[in-house]
Design a protein around this nucleic acid. Structure first.
Lengths: 195, 195
DNA sequence: TTTAGGTCAACTCATTGTCTTGACCTAAAT
DNA sequence: ATTTAGGTCAAGACAATGAGTTGACCTAAA
């Protein structure tokens, strides 16, 4: 049904290791394909994030809603990204985040307990996990730093050089929120940058 | 925060019994107010329905999605109705139903285990539960019968005489689906009934 | 062989979402 | 004290979506 091949390729590519047939079988058995329709939630705030999802198709946003009902986008996800609130997922605490499909999606999802098994038994998976965690850490650090020391314009330039496809896939107001800008400011920045 | 008064009134009115202050305290402690935004799901298919919800404000639909992606509305809910897939809720089996907010909603929700407590300790609650179950059974029976023996037009007439406010609160295509009609057919029925 | 009602396609109209623009405000940095 | 970056508010343009209607046609059961 769902395309596990892309998932296997992804693991092998990131980890630099091969998956055996048994590995693949294990993964296929315990990653459950799930379809989300546009606007459907993968995770709703106040719930525990019981599943981690690998995006096969579609896009999503992770966001919070503050007291005033204002939405704050923390993460934008596309194909070959992971969906989860890791804090909630690992500690089983209620999440403050919402993860919402922005398009119809296909996701492969599994539980915390299963992830432990994969880490133990599948070398490629475990290698991948390490690399991903490193990448996330670096990316987050960069983002934090950028938020403090870069101007709005620089952050935008940074985004388009690192993730040029974001502009095609995500509405501009969500990118603005992701960059910590008002939609108006981003609109003006874009206008100016056409010179 | 949320309006428990309406909930208390409802219980007392249906059951014909009074709630003591302790009863109210127990209910307030264990029914958690929850806000749903329009299009948010109270329950998604394949999940276990862990909560039952009392609608304080807003409206919702219970529907299934068949293999062809066609949505089938089974229930329309307004203020002072209950939200749950009772089969899933009582048996803890994965649900085939989706329950989706059609407007921003305020719901009071609690768990199966808590309901047991209420039934044991709150006479008014237990009396209410009995009456509701009876009403549901009767209503379902009528609906089944209607589906088989009435024409589309009769079912529509029946609906507007029993629930005239549905027309104001729910989009016509959902009412059509609820009646087991195509939207086109309902549209034509309404046109004719203006004579 | 009529009839009830479904399916498909096209069109209208209202609603919502997205982006842009101008006017104005504020806080920090000169 | 005043420039500057960027936020807030309000209005408007435009596109996309959703809801309702209508006509044409099809099918199964009475």
């Amino acid at each position: 049904m769902s395309n596990f091949e892309a998932f296997f390729d992804y693991i092998q590519e990131i980890s630099g290791k091969m998956l055996s047939e048994e590995d693949k079988l294990l993964l296929t058995e315990h990653f459950k394909p799930k379809k989300l329709r546009k606007r459907q939630y993968f995770l709703q705030e106040e719930n525990v994030c019981r599943y981690i999802g690998f995006v096969v198709k579609g896009s999503a946003r992770t966001f919070t809603v503050d007291e005033k009902g204002h939405e704050n986008v923390l993460k934008l996800s596309l194909e070959n990204w992971w969906l989860a609130d890791f804090e909630s997922f690992y500690l089983l605490t209620p999440s403050r985040f919402n993860i919402e499909a922005l398009e119809d999606m296909e996701v492969l999802q599994t539980t915390n307990a299963q992830i432990e098994e994969f880490l133990k038994h599948i070398p490629a998976f475990s290698a991948m996990a390490n690399i991903i965690n490193q990448n996330y850490t670096i990316a987050n650090q960069k983002r934090m730093q950028a938020a403090f020391s870069y101007t709005a314009e620089e952050r935008y330039e940074d985004l388009i050089s690192n993730y040029p496809h974001f502009l095609q896939r995500f509405p501009q107001n969500m990118i603005a929120s992701y960059l910590g800008l008002s939609p108006e400011t981003l609109s003006r920045i874009r206008k100016n940058s056409f010179k």
